[in-house]
Simulated assay, not measured.
Amino acid sequence: MTNSDKAFVIKRDDLQRLFDVIITRGYTPVGPMVRDGVIVYDVLRRVQDLPEGWTEDQDAGTYRLKRRDDSALFGFNNGPHSWKKYLFPPRSKLWEGKKTEDGGFTLKEVEDTERPFAFIGVRSCDLHAIQVQDKVFMNEHHPDPLYTDRRSRALIIVVNCGQAAKTCFCTSMNTGPRAEGGYDLALTEILDGDDHYFFAEPGSKDGFSLLAEVPHEEADSDNFTAAEKGTKRAEEQMGRKIDISDIKELLYRNYDNERWDALEKRCLACGNCTMACPTCFCSKVEDVTDLTGDHAERWREWDSCFTMDFSYIHGGSVRSTTRSRYRQWLMHKLATWLDQFGTSGCVGCGRCITWCPVGIDLTEEVRLIRDSENQKDIANG
């Protein structure tokens, strides 16, 4: 429950009213839809845009859409997109400059013209991912202006998970499958025969305000039980798990583990895991000019620690091997991130497993490293 200890019921047929209110208030509603054979996040205008009756089959290196046997609107887990592409865009212009007639140069910072976003269908793991990136981009010493502005104006509508994919391990990371706070409104989709409704928990003043304009009724004990069953079902379906009890110390002790050599033989250094990850934040800055040299622009773009150029300094790349780049990614995600930001960089969403073309499984690699250490202890008596 939220701090308000209040929960309500919104009928499926009244969900469009929620969309209408969000749009009327000046938000751009963003949420899941089916496109190009996957479930992506894009601008929504109506309930019919949602992936009604669709789910996915996910495993290591595998993603396939398939039909459900019901009309669930949020009966899926996660596609390749995460909400970071709206708060931390893949490509954004920082400034532009123009040469003046007197030989000078005028500089103009680019203003963000996007309307505030309403994120509809945020999973608990992804809500935690947003909060992880808050620590990166909204720290008190060097806040990122674009991220900070978009985040402060965003409306967060969670939809709690009623199922888990084979690659999910949010329970191991204590990030789901049910959101406990940090949202404006949390919904749990309930399908019980012909009864289709959303168990709604407002988590902020904006959440209560939205709910006031949408037909609803107070939840009863049966509604609470149905919502709890959905969460329990998702917990029981977790496809992966990972022991994080001493994860930082484990990885620090195994910096030279031979498992990194085995990973180098499989990893393509394609960077898919970093692009799909909801918390990765590596970027690069590039300056461009027109052919005359009178106009210049500076752009920030997503980058990946798997690229050779990312660690390039005078004289060459610091991490010149795939072994060193994969180790950097995994150790930063699960170990050094804790030192840097006070939290793990992994939320257990499983995207890095699903979207790895060769099916490298982060949870399995950690287990193998742990097992190799245990075997050494046994051998040493």
Rank of each mutant, 00 (worst) to 15 (best):
D149A: 11
A118Q: 10
N3L: 01
K265H: 09
D256Q: 12
G348W: 14
E301Y: 13
H128E: 14
T363D: 15
V122I: 10
G103N: 04
E228G: 05
V318T: 13
L334Y: 13
G79W: 14
I244A: 05
E301I: 03
R367M: 09
K205Y: 08
I22T: 13
K99N: 11
E109T: 15
F208Q: 01
T28F: 07
K66Y: 12
T188C: 06
M308A: 06
I190G: 00
N160Y: 13
L44P: 02
E140K: 02
G207E: 01
H332Q: 14
I10H: 04
V132N: 03
D371E: 15
C346H: 07
T62P: 00
F119L: 15
D20T: 14
C273Y: 14
Y41N: 13
K248M: 09
C349N: 04
K98L: 01
T100L: 06
L73V: 03
R151Q: 13
Q16N: 14
T289Y: 02
D42C: 12
T28D: 08
D294H: 12
D70H: 14
A179R: 10
T321I: 04
Q133E: 11
V285Q: 07
E258I: 14
V34F: 06
F74P: 00
Y27K: 13
A219G: 02
E109A: 05
W302K: 06
V30H: 07
R178W: 15
G348F: 06
K99L: 12
Q48L: 08
A7G: 11
D49A: 05
H141Q: 11
P90R: 14
R45N: 07
V358L: 02
N380I: 10
C270L: 11
Y63F: 05
H142L: 08
D294C: 08
G182I: 00
L44M: 11
A227P: 01
G104A: 03
N77G: 02
T363Y: 08
R46Y: 05
D112M: 02
R12E: 10
F19K: 15
C170I: 12
R367W: 13
W355M: 06
T167E: 12
K85P: 00
R64H: 07
G79C: 08
D303E: 11
G316T: 03
A165M: 04
C282L: 04
E96N: 02
Q163S: 05
V38D: 14
W329R: 10
C346G: 02
P278K: 14
W329V: 03
C346W: 11
Y27L: 06
D361M: 07
R91K: 12
F117D: 09
A60K: 03
Y183A: 09
E217C: 04
Y147L: 11
I242W: 15
K229S: 09
H295E: 05
E218Y: 08
